[in-house]
Design a protein around this nucleic acid. Structure first.
Lengths: 341, 341
DNA sequence: TCACTCGTTGTTAGCGTTAACACGACTTGA
DNA sequence: TCAAGTCGTGTTAACGCTAACAACGAGTGA
């Protein structure tokens, strides 16, 4: 298969010689140029096949100034959300004919984002998707002089970049309205870290739903997305006798909340109802199975590539914003409030 | 910042002109060539800074025939294990000065692996890490005529490729021995899909530990890593009155098992003890917190890059195999067996 | 018949870098 | 003092591809 050791890989000129044409004709065949006689084309293709020739994309990139590589900058791809988004991005990019080069950041300070973009720019990527869920990252992106077409995922409002995101506010609303509709007087909230845009959006949705129903919004408890922080919030909540419904900003923290409630003998959903966010694969098997809000990460990834490719290939200039709606998933962690609590 | 619109990016010749030297001298400065007068070097650096020059890595790759890009082929990076491994790989590669290009496969048939490698080869990667946890993928890899230096993660024995993996057999042993040491008569097993090498290794470790203790190995129940399949296995186990200890091949399935036991009124660890595998971030907050085996995915990722870079830069030819030991994590899902069961 | 167009192919000139070699100015040692 | 290094630098030629243009024969309309 063209790997006879010690021989150098065939180049276009070798194919040309084999087919008895010029290397430019080979190039034309490879690039589907219309003006090539079909007989010639066949001869070239046969030579390509015989020699096991593969076009050198680096040389091609040098002359065309396009590498057909997209960069992805993301924060901790170990987390379910980012991992799923990046997965969606990668699938979409590949099927659009682009390679994907990834940088995943431990901490997402503005300098980190800047460095990552420089790094990718050096590599010669044609465009970049930045998964920038923190406000600071989004701001950094907005302030940067962007030499390369860029799309932000969950990237806030500012700046010139296009943004694709899940409607977090709607998600927070959905969760809260569900609990209110079951008859709960009010809904408590365990939020994500305050500099995360997603956390902010969910808080806003929760607050809006309460306000609309004319209910008082209790002080939210702040977590950091980890089950551990949910557990701590859960211990606090278990001590308060007037809590009957909690909207937790992600499923992992909800797991911690459930754990704390179990330990304290608070029954879910008997005494307290709990709603999570994300719909991770595990949440259907929590005890009890978790009612939650699902985000279509895959769609987010796909859309971000669509937007980017539109800009790259059709030369679209105006900035786009695309919002993916979340979905409500009813399971067993929510019920009507208890009679006498 | 060198981004004055409408002007083309500066190239080496521009820097050379600015500094009053030849472009080759600029190249020497950039590549830390020793024979450059320090005064000249300073002048060049100043010109680089003034023009905001950045070296074109594509042109460089064309002439050096090395792209400083590594490819990663992985199966479903949405799963915690692969995601963490890929994360470790990416970090290690970047700090070794390599870019990382990712292909994540939905299904990992041999043709898929082959295509992914071809695809990356076209892009001009210098080396590849294949996360190949299925036997079929490992076999495909072993059979392939590998034009590019390749390292397999969890890749089995065959072929010429170097392999980095976690010692799954030791993990299975650890889990089983722990349960036996608590006084359980025997240990049941919920395994992963049979074509996964990891599943196979865990089964082998479990079987070996039982054999060594002179116990009968019950028929293992086969799952597919999902909480759902664990739940189903759990329902079967709950019905059998002689089960007091279960080793589940991953934490997600263990979650399903716990859920089934809870539903059937089987108390954990009161009546049945459960051990998982992986130590995902959630498992400390399961009900009860899960005793499990932790795998250092990060170390696996790092080692795979070390092996690859050794081959790339020091020209090492012999194939290496590196095994990372798993660790036992005791939590609250295991206890002595009940008296009269 | 001639001028013109069109389809097909070849020739030449880059893209921006590094490698290889050439060359003069110094040093060094006999 | 001269042959033989070193050092610092410049010149030229690739790397493998595409873009731009040139060339040529065949068809077309006047």
């Amino acid at each position: 298969m063209g790997s006879r050791l010690g021989r150098r890989l065939p180049v276009m000129a070798d194919v040309a010689r084999e087919a008895g044409v010029s290397h430019q004709t080979v190039s034309r065949v490879l690039n589907d140029h219309p003006n090539v006689r079909s007989e010639t084309r066949a001869r070239v293709l046969q030579a390509i096949d015989k020699l096991g020739y593969r076009r050198n994309l680096v040389a091609r990139a040098l002359v065309t100034k396009r590498s057909r590589t997209l960069g992805v900058v993301s924060f901790d791809t170990t987390l379910y959300g980012p991992a799923s988004t990046v997965y969606g991005i990668e699938q979409a990019a590949r099927s659009a004919g682009y390679f994907v080069s990834i940088v995943s950041l431990k901490s997402i300070d503005p300098a980190g984002v800047r460095d990552a973009l420089d790094y990718l720019a050096d590599q010669g990527v044609d465009g970049v998707v930045v998964v920038a869920p923190q406000r600071s990252a989004a701001r950094a992106l907005a302030d940067l002089p962007l030499a390369i077409p860029t799309v932000a995922v969950e990237g806030g409002q500012a700046g010139e970049v296009s943004v694709v995101s899940v409607d977090q506010v709607a998600g927070g609303r959905l969760a809260t309205e569900h609990l209110l509709s079951l008859g709960h007087e009010t809904v408590w909230h365990v939020s994500g870290p305050s500099d995360w845009l997603e956390a902010e959006g969910r808080v806003a949705g929760w607050r809006a739903a309460l306000e609309q129903a004319g209910r008082e919004a209790p002080q939210p408890l702040a977590g950091d997305w980890s089950p551990r922080s949910g557990y701590e919030a859960g211990r606090s909540l278990a001590r308060m006798t007037d809590v009957t419904a909690v909207f937790v900003a992600n499923d992992q923290m909800a797991l911690g909340v459930l754990r704390a409630f179990t330990e304290q003998g608070v029954s879910v959903p008997g005494q307290v109802s709990v709603v999570g966010f994300d719909d991770i694969p595990e949440s259907a098997y929590f005890s009890p199975p978790l009612t939650t809000i699902s985000q279509d990460f895959d769609a987010v990834g796909r859309h971000s590539i669509e937007v980017l490719v539109r800009r790259l290939e059709d030369g679209l200039q105006e900035r786009e914003r695309l919002v993916v709606p979340p979905a409500f998933v009813r399971r067993a962690s929510t019920a009507r409030p208890p009679e006498g609590r």
